[in-house]
Amino acid sequence: MTLTVTELGELVDGLAGLPYGGEAVDQRTHALQAGWFAAEAEADDELLLAAVLHDVGRAESVRTEYPGLPHELAGAEFARKHLSESAAWIIAQHVPAKRFLVATDAGYGSLLSPASVASLKKQGGPMSTVEAEEFRGHPRWEDAVRVRRWDDAAKDPDGPVLTTEDVLTVYRRWLGGQEHSR
């Protein structure tokens, strides 16, 4: 079931004022800033949308639809229903990607905010070698890592952001591509 452009705009704008776990930005700014980083990296439309929606599982409407799931899994279910299986996987994996990076990139842990360090402990800490190899086995693992890095960087209250209209333009283009691929 495809989300309408209006529904996506309302969802993104509805994140305004929603706290982001002790960070200096709200969920809307965080989402739009992650999208900005994706756009700067010339991500394809699906990856940019996954970056914007990586924390959509924290939105009240999504939490209500998928009660009891961690935000990354609720967001993945939302993306599976409204975007694609690939976007769903990337969204589901943005938390494991943090665990992966802590385990495989010696300098990564020092880049984490205090709130992200605290949540890492709850998320299971660094991946084991076996978990990291399994993670690397997925064809989109690098995209999940990219979203994770954009997620980490998207915490600056004065940083650049996409506008909601920018996101909707990407979504319209992505929808058009979906129509042509059928």
Rank of each mutant, 00 (worst) to 15 (best):
R99N: 15
A39M: 13
L18W: 11
G17K: 09
Y20C: 12
A38K: 06
I91D: 00
V52F: 09
G68Y: 02
V25W: 01
L83K: 01
A39T: 10
Y66S: 05
A50H: 03
H30E: 12
W89P: 00
S61Y: 09
G68D: 03
D26K: 06
E40L: 13
A43R: 11
F100W: 14
W89T: 03
L18S: 09
E65R: 15
Q27P: 00
S84W: 08
P70W: 04
A41C: 00
L48M: 11
W89K: 06
F37P: 02
T29M: 10
W36I: 10
G22S: 02
A43E: 14
L48Y: 07
L73D: 11
A38M: 07
A97H: 01
I91F: 01
A31F: 14
A38R: 06
R80D: 10
L49Q: 11
L49F: 11
L49N: 11
V102D: 00
Q33R: 07
E42W: 12
I90E: 07
P70H: 11
Q27T: 07
V25Q: 01
E23Q: 15
L47E: 06
F78W: 15
L18M: 12
T29E: 04
K98N: 12
A41K: 00
A97F: 01
Q33V: 05
P70I: 08
F78K: 12
P70F: 09
E40S: 14
V95T: 13
V102M: 02
H94Q: 12
A87S: 09
H82N: 13
A59P: 10
E77H: 15
R99K: 09
D26E: 04
I90N: 06
D45W: 07
E72L: 00
G35T: 06
Q93G: 03
T64P: 00
E65Q: 13
L101I: 04
R99G: 03
A31Y: 12
H82C: 03
E40T: 12
G57C: 06
A74Y: 03
A74C: 00
K81Y: 11
L49W: 13
V56Y: 05
L69Y: 14
H94N: 08
F100D: 03
A87I: 11
L49H: 11
D44L: 00
L101Y: 02
L73W: 10
G68F: 02
E72K: 00
G17N: 08
A92G: 08
E23K: 12
R58V: 09
L47S: 01
H94Y: 02
E65H: 12
I90Q: 09
A51I: 07
L83T: 10
L83Q: 06
I90S: 05
S61R: 15
A97G: 04
E77F: 10
L101V: 05
V52M: 03
L32Y: 04
T64A: 15
L18Y: 10
D45C: 10
A50S: 06
P67F: 05
Q93N: 14
A79M: 03
K81H: 14
A50M: 01
S86N: 10
W89S: 07
